[in-house]
Design a protein around this nucleic acid. Structure first.
Ligand code: FES
Ligand code: FES
Lengths: 153, 153
DNA sequence: ATAAATAAGGACAAAAATATCCTTAATTAC
DNA sequence: GTAATTAAGGATATTTTTGTCCTTATTTAT
């Protein structure tokens, strides 16, 4: 559904929301380790999310790293998609027509419409904080355990 | 949601289902024109869909082209995704975890689960024929009218 | 002030997706 | 059988996405 970049973004933000605070900033190293994403690529994504302090914040230097404020945690998950410039995926036409709407609907539109609305609703109403809390509760996980390129020694 | 290749595949198959028959085969030229897709790329995709006569059929030569049998029209739309090797997108984890399941759910899982089930249901129960009929009824459209690269003269 | 730790950012590399072109094979019309 | 038409298939090109590496800037600790 989403690009890898956005998947990493979602996981990273949830992790930072759960573990990070102004008193306990999280390094890229820790984040990419915890969510199972490539370190440098993750750094790029965090840069995007930090831009204009949209989703996360950061400071350089020793004890530096990434963290979030309560206000940022209250953002809908959709804000992450918007920051990653993939918000349109939620409202896109399944068949790739230029616009998905009632005026020129594709043959899937009628049956897909309801699902689309639920999708948008989901990303719009669930907040980053809510997802982080699921992690706290220990009922959810966030680490990809796929084939991992082992580092040569 | 899907790759461009799969979007073109869905549109092309719906078009062939609607207009094509053993008596009236459709050329690549006509198909790509009708659905607004790049000609040669579309040819590749049609090749894949034709492989082992999975979704469509074809013959070469004059009056040749693509068409479908009634049996093929009865296939669920999901069969197209399977042929394009993107069936997994329907059941994939939103956050990109290796597997989406109850045992190791991601923080989005609980709320996404229902939507996922509806998505699968939709692609599993709707048939290619049904989509083609929506076209017949004139209530649905299939042509992408986006920015088109004008051919230089 | 200096050294160390850390993110920011630019340049580059690799891989995958998208797209085009050209030659070959199959079929049909004559 | 010959020419014309059409898809099949291979090779290649282009663009986008994913990923790495290196240098710079900022902050902290001493
Ligand atoms: S127009 Fe295709 S999904 Fe709405
Ligand atoms: S585990 Fe992530 S959506 Fe099911």
């Amino acid at each position: 559904m989403f690009s890898k970049a956005t998947e990493y973004a979602l996981r990273a933000v949830i992790y930072i929301a759960q573990k990070g605070s102004p008193e306990n900033k999280i390094s890229i190293e820790e984040i990419s380790g915890a969510i199972g994403s490539p370190r440098s690529f993750t750094a790029k994504i965090l840069q995007i999310l930090r831009k204009d302090n949209r989703i996360i914040q950061s400071v350089t230097g020793p004890q530096g790293g990434f963290y979030m404020t309560e206000q940022h945690r209250k953002l809908p998950v959709r804000a992450i998609l918007t920051a990653m410039n993939e918000d349109h995926i939620l409202s896109k036409c399944v068949l790739g027509l230029h616009t998905c709407n009632e005026l020129k609907p594709c043959p899937m539109h009628a049956s897909y419409k309801k699902i689309k609305e639920q999708l948008i609703q989901l990303f719009e109403t669930r907040t980053i904080a809510q997802l982080a809390h699921e992690m706290d509760a220990g009922t959810a996980f966030i680490k990809f355990l796929g084939k991992k390129k082992e580092k040569r020694k």
